[in-house]
Design a binder for these strands. Sequence first.
DNA 1: AAGGAGCCCAACCGCAATTAC
DNA 2: CGTAATTGCGGTTGGGCTCCT
Length: 253
Amino acid sequence: MEHLGVRKGAWTEEEDILLRKCIEKFGEGKWRQVPFKAGLRRCHKSCRLRWLTYLKPGIKRGEFAEDEVDLIIRLHKLLGNKWSLIAGRLPGRTSNDVKNYWNCHLSRRLTMQKGAQSQIKSINTTTANAAVATKIIMPKPHSFSPNSKWLSGAGPSTIATQVPKMSNNPMLESPQEESTVWWKSLLAYVDQEDHTWWPKSTEVGQEKDLLQSFVAEEMEMMGKDEDKATVENGFGELDNMLLDVDLWGLFET
DNA sequence: AAGGAGCCCAACCGCAATTAC
DNA sequence: CGTAATTGCGGTTGGGCTCCT
């Protein structure tokens, strides 16, 4: 315990109560002022971290579910150590949690697996065709919602015409091909500049990066003549995963 | 029982990014 | 514009716990 100045180390229950009361009263933000308002001898950064990683309502604690782990692995493969971005896809999880989980449980496990995997792959190729019969998640088309929160006011009324709807285009041979074209078009659209009606340029950039990574991965698989079920599953997962992203607030499902 | 090795996770630190002025 | 203040991010640390010898 420091005589003067700020306290460090683990938070006590009393401190938690003071911080919680302060934020309930004044709201989140203005972290510089929080220690004074709350009557805490903590630095503002410590207060912010405590709130965001522990006290804030809705934070999920305890074991990561299987699907959460799976998502972490997939996202980390594409995004690297972008913990806040990864955590953004896991409701209730903080970037600190995800980072800790990765460092403790996954980084080691995955490096160990890598060696073993190449051996398994050669065995599995012979039985791969049998797995095609498993459930195929088809990509879902989206059209723009007139009630979208981002489209109010000066929103681009023409946007709906720029991203093609799924249609019965006779030029396209399969639903798979059709949805691929749809994803490509969307990507091209997102790639354009001047989306001033979007909330923040960086957020758009992040969603765009994510989208590009996933679509690129799927395109690559198609190029490699991966079996159709695998590719369709990939697009399906991509679609499901991004449904809760702000970007998809633009669409009705 | 003791102690030490290893694990887990909350919290810290430095710096980058963003916002305010 | 520039720069100061503020916020956010990710690497890292260290304390407490469990397990093993």
